[in-house]
C-alpha cells in the first residue's frame, strides 16, 4: 500500500464512524424535521403535503403557541434577572480573594450537577401541601398559618418555578463570571487604583466592560435554556401541562404524542430551532462589534 493510500485509510477509519453516526442520527432527523413540518400526518396514514399551513395555524393569534412562548419568555426573564444579578455579585465578592472562596465556589455549584427531574421533585416537596411540605410546615409551626398554601397549583406554577430555577442555575453563571474576572490582568486594577478610582467605578468601567463577551455568552445560555424549558414542567404537572403551564417543548410533545398531530408538533420544533438560531447569531454579531481587545 502506498503512503498516500495508507493515510487515506487512516482518515476514513478515524472520521468514518462518527460522521456516519452524526449524519444518521442528527443531520438526517434535522432535515426530516423541516420536511415533517410541511405536512399533515398522524403517523399511520400517508402524510399529506400542506406547505406552510402548519406555520400559518401556529402563528394565528389565537394559537396556544404564543401562550407557550410567553411562558418560555417569563421563565427566561423572571429568574434570569436574579441569576445574572446574584451570579455577578457573588463572583465579584469571591474574586476579592476572601477566605473560604473555594468553599463558596464549590458549594454554590452543587445544584447544577443534580438532574432536573430530581430538582423538580425536590421543589415539589418543598412546596407541597401534604405532610412533607417544607415551606408549609414552617408557615404552620412558626407563623401559625391555618391552611397550607398551594404553591404549585397549575394557575401560578410558573411563579413557583422562579426560585427553583434561580437556585438550580446561579452557581454555573457565578463560576463562568468568576473565570472571566480572574482573566482580567491585575495591572488594570492597579492603574485604576493609582488614579484614585472607587471600587464601584472600577467595577462599572473596568470589570464589566472587559468581561462583556462572557456576560453575553451567559445571557445567550440563559435565553436558549429558557426556550428549551421542559423537564420541570413535565414532572410537576405529571405529564399533563395545562394552558397556563405549557412551554414550547411540552406543547410540541403533547401535539405529537397525544394528539398525533405530527406536522403541527414538528413545526413548533422548527420555530424553536429558528428562535435559538436567531438569538445565537445576533449575539455573535453584537460580540464582533463590541469585543474589547486587551
Amino acid at each position: 500500500m502506498t503512503k498516500r493510500n495508507e493515510r487515506n485509510l487512516f482518515l476514513w477509519m478515524f472520521l468514518g464512524p462518527s460522521v456516519a453516526l452524526y449524519s444518521l442520527f442528527v443531520l438526517l432527523p434535522t432535515i426530516n424535521a423541516f420536511r415533517y413540518s410541511l405536512t399533515r400526518w398522524d403517523g399511520l396514514s400517508p402524510a399529506v403535503w400542506v406547505g406552510l399551513q402548519n406555520f400559518a395555524r401556529i402563528l394565528d393569534p389565537k394559537s396556544l403557541f404564543y401562550t407557550a412562548l410567553g411562558h418560555n419568555i417569563f421563565l427566561t426573564l423572571a429568574p434570569g434577572i436574579f441569576i445574572l444579578g446574584m451570579a455577578l455579585l457573588f463572583a465579584y465578592l469571591i474574586h476579592q480573594r476572601i477566605k473560604g472562596a473555594r468553599l463558596f465556589r464549590i458549594t454554590f455549584f452543587f445544584p447544577n450537577v443534580i438532574s432536573s427531574v430530581a430538582i423538580a421533585i425536590l421543589w415539589v416537596l418543598i412546596y407541597s401541601t401534604s405532610a412533607a411540605g417544607l415551606i408549609n410546615n414552617v408557615l404552620k409551626s412558626v407563623f401559625h398559618f391555618k391552611d397550607a398554601v398551594p404553591f404549585t397549583e397549575s394557575s401560578h406554577l410558573l411563579w413557583a418555578l422562579v426560585p427553583m430555577i434561580v437556585w438550580s442555575a446561579t452557581g454555573f453563571y457565578m463560576v463562568l463570571f468568576l473565570a472571566a474576572m480572574e482573566n482580567i490582568p491585575d495591572s488594570f486594577y492597579e492603574a485604576a487604583r493609582l488614579d484614585g478610582a472607587s471600587n464601584g467605578k472600577i467595577f462599572w468601567s473596568i470589570t464589566l466592560p472587559l468581561m462583556w463577551d462572557v456576560l453575553t455568552t451567559g445571557i445567550v445560555f440563559l435565553i436558549v435554556g429558557g426556550l428549551k424549558f421542559f423537564d420541570a414542567i413535565w414532572v410537576m404537572e405529571n405529564g399533563r401541562p395545562s394552558t397556563s403551564t405549557h412551554t414550547l417543548s411540552s406543547l410540541m410533545y403533547a401535539k405529537v404524542f397525544e394528539e398525533y398531530n405530527i406536522g403541527f408538533g414538528t413545526a413548533i420544533a422548527v420555530l424553536l430551532f429558528l428562535l435559538v438560531l436567531i438569538v445565537t447569531l445576533v449575539s455573535r454579531r453584537l460580540l464582533q462589534r463590541e469585543r474589547l481587545e486587551y
Binding site: 442528527v26 424535521a33 426556550l227 420544533a269 430551532f273
Partner: peptide, 30 residues
C-alpha cells in the same frame, strides 16, 4: 490536511445549534 476538512468541521459545529427537540420526533419515526 485533507479536502473538505473545513466543511466537515463546520458540519459538526452546526450541531451545537440544533436543539434536541428538533430531532426528537423525526428520530422516533426513523
Amino acid at each position: 490536511e485533507f479536502r473538505g476538512k473545513n466543511f466537515l468541521y463546520a458540519l459538526f459545529l452546526a450541531g451545537l445549534l440544533i436543539p434536541m427537540q428538533l430531532i426528537l420526533i423525526p428520530l422516533f419515526f426513523q
